[in-house]
Design a protein around this nucleic acid. Structure first.
Lengths: 234, 234
DNA sequence: GATTATTAATTGGTCAACCAAAATTATTTT
DNA sequence: AAAATAATTTTGGTTGACCAATTAATAATC
């Protein structure tokens, strides 16, 4: 899940809210040192562990930087921006399915495009192998995960580690959504063909074909997500 | 920074390596329960805190799920995929600048495109306000952060929280790169104009124009990143 | 009085003990 | 023998104490 911190959020969100208010009241200037862990723990009547978790989360998003034995510094950006960032972090949980799928689509298409430019012979080989593995497991419970691996190989060939990591982060969320709804529980033969088209496009270095093929391949999922959103509003 | 866990990685990476090996030796089956925190801490001769940090990181990426008082379960995907995921996580650090910029470009363009479809009057108003704020601070040290806010408003208008969060994650990394190289320390007047074009495109719901304008707006940064990569290989 | 050296207090990092919930085992009851 | 109950162990969650490094405050020196 993207929201790692869901179960501890009761405490964490309390800390984030407090930091937010500190900035709001002008008691915490951007670029300055934020309260010591012990101090804040006592102030909020909460364990220091929770403060540390909250600070770690803020550090993940680049808002604070913790220096051992000297304290945690808040980013030197204007307080309006800071507040926006923090309130965003507080709301990070339960991404809607359509946003996840939309983002995956755009990242996968870019990965395919870059793969056309940068894939070497070894990548192509790995791609073919992953596809064969997928076909071999088409009627087994491993099909879904073999499909995941196929897409990961493409991301690998794109030579863009950021895209690779981001797909790594959102894919489990997507899976958890459509496993529940047992979408794609029945394997479609068209998937095999679509994979093959993507491989051919990458091998022939045709980025436009690769992107189009990837879009087509994910279109069923995309449509599913859109419909799900619509029926939610009815 | 995206690599939150950099300073504790000495211990964390040790744990991840161990889990990786467990899977490799077949001692840890996918879908099964992984070692209790105390057990593993003793085994690796390391504090339980480090085990908890490592498990938390694995949970962030959806590889494990921790249940209070009953243990942590590893995802029920095939061991090859599991190993790939873990080795990816171990290598998550020090993203190269080009990957970051490439990814930002693709996400910003998609955000602009979606904003054309979904922005309401309030969003347009916020966009204009953010731009005016940017202009007002054009000669001040706040220019960079005002630019950041402008882009955040677009992400907000896209109604895609995943894209918004991901931009939130990678932007600080990008900033830390080009602040070092004092790229864009001299403000270019074209930026003002480019922002205005983006606003007009979104207001007139012309997604193609908005995407093109965003691409143009980020082209200087993109070119900078590509050149930096080239000179790295010389 | 200013500067340096020394001491004390503060800080984040780490560890070990404790807590309540859950899972397991042993005991009792039927 | 099977089922229900009770005691025990194991589990992740939480807390407070300790550690080394840093910083601030104080004393000593010039």
């Amino acid at each position: 899940m993207l929201s790692t911190f869901s179960h501890k959020e009761n405490s964490t969100v309390k800390v984030l809210r407090y930091i937010y208010d500190l900035i709001n009241e002008g008691k915490l200037k951007p670029g300055s040192k934020l309260p010591a862990e012990r101090k804040l723990a006592e102030e909020l009547e909460v364990g220091r562990t929770h403060i540390r978790n909250a600070y770690a989360e803020l550090e993940f998003y680049g808002i604070v930087k913790t220096y051992p034995q000297s304290g945690s510094m808040v980013a030197a950006i204007h307080h309006n921006a800071l507040q926006g960032l923090i309130s965003d972090i507080m709301s990070i949980e339960n991404y809607d399915f359509l946003s996840l799928v939309e983002t995956r689509l755009i990242l996968e298409m870019e990965a395919a495009r870059l793969a056309c430019e940068r894939a070497d012979d070894k990548d192509i080989e790995a791609l073919k192998h992953a596809h064969q593995d997928y076909i071999d497991n088409f009627q087994t419970p491993h099909r879904v995960e073999k499909d995941m691996i196929f897409h990961r190989v493409i991301a690998q060939a794109s030579r863009n580690d950021v895209i690779k990591s981001m797909l790594l982060i959102i894919t489990p969320d997507i899976l958890s959504h459509y496993v529940r709804k047992d979408f794609c529980s029945t394997p479609l033969p068209t998937d095999k063909h679509e994979h093959q088209i993507i491989i051919d496009a990458i091998e022939s270095r045709s980025s436009s074909k690769a992107v189009a093929a990837m879009r087509l391949h994910l279109d069923r999922l995309y449509t599913f997500a859109k419909n799900k959103k619509e029926e939610k509003f009815q």
